[in-house]
Amino acid sequence: MSNTERFFFRHTTTVDADPGDIWALWVDVNGWPRWDSGLESTKFSGTFRKGSSFELTPRGGEPLEVTLRSVTEGEEFSDETILAFGTIRNAHRMRPVAGKVELTHEVEAVINKAEAVFFASEIWPHMRDGIPEALANIRGIVEN
């Protein structure tokens, strides 16, 4: 029997934009609060590549260290945050579809059972519900 609980959410949307414009938003880590209202701030001074880390402060939360786990320029990136009560992984992908761009954002949280009830009621709803909004905000920026 596992001593963790897994949470997972995926959202996909299609935008009429140049993939380069989307990629530019993604690699501008310090600008993420512009399209992700769940973020108070981000601090990144390195190169956007696998293994690089940055500080992310969720709205109303404490700063967290996030590490880029994969980066394929112009296509995808993933990141991971290791917390005292579990691990959160995000994956952001784009691919061309019929002259447009399909954007997908996935989040997976693997949380210690002892904290899973708190996480499920206090943290997860904000993370999960923020993803469609963030993708809609990206659409609003790149389609205008």
Rank of each mutant, 00 (worst) to 15 (best):
R10N: 11
K113M: 11
H105P: 00
T104A: 13
N137W: 00
D28H: 06
T14M: 05
S53L: 09
V110N: 08
D36C: 02
E143D: 08
A24E: 14
V71D: 00
E143T: 14
G51L: 01
T72R: 10
H105D: 01
V107S: 03
E115A: 15
W23P: 03
D16K: 09
W124S: 06
A17H: 04
K113A: 11
G31Y: 09
E73T: 11
K100P: 01
A24H: 09
A109L: 05
D16C: 07
N137P: 02
I82D: 15
R59M: 15
V142C: 03
W26G: 02
M94Q: 12
R89N: 06
R49H: 13
A116G: 09
I82E: 15
F118K: 08
I123C: 02
I138Q: 05
T57L: 07
T12H: 00
F54K: 00
T14D: 13
N144Q: 10
N112R: 11
A98I: 07
D129L: 06
R10G: 07
L68S: 06
E75T: 12
I88C: 03
A120M: 07
V15C: 04
R95M: 10
I123V: 15
F7T: 03
I111A: 07
H92M: 03
M127H: 06
T42H: 04
T12P: 00
F85K: 12
E75K: 12
R93C: 03
E80A: 13
V29I: 15
N3I: 15
G99H: 06
V15T: 03
P132M: 04
A109N: 04
D79L: 05
A109E: 02
S45H: 12
N3H: 11
T57K: 08
F7S: 06
R95C: 01
G46C: 07
T87K: 06
N137L: 00
G74Q: 05
T42V: 10
M94W: 02
T57D: 03
P132D: 14
E102A: 14
S53H: 11
N112Q: 13
F77C: 00
G31N: 09
T4G: 06
D28L: 07
E73M: 04
F118T: 14
M127D: 10
E133L: 11
L103W: 02
G74I: 04
E122H: 11
F8N: 10
E115L: 13
E62S: 15
S41F: 10
G74R: 05
F44H: 04
N90Y: 13
L135M: 03
F8G: 00
E143R: 01
T72S: 08
D36I: 07
I88W: 04
D79T: 09
F77P: 00
L64E: 15
L39Q: 10
T104D: 05
G60W: 10
D21G: 08
A24D: 14
R128H: 11
P96Q: 15
N30H: 01
A98T: 12
T47V: 14
D18S: 10
A91R: 08
P125W: 06
P19L: 05
F8L: 09
I22T: 01
I22N: 01
F48R: 01
M127Q: 10
M127R: 12
F118R: 13
N112Y: 13
F54R: 07
H92Q: 06
G46L: 04
S41V: 08
I82R: 14
D28W: 04
F48V: 00
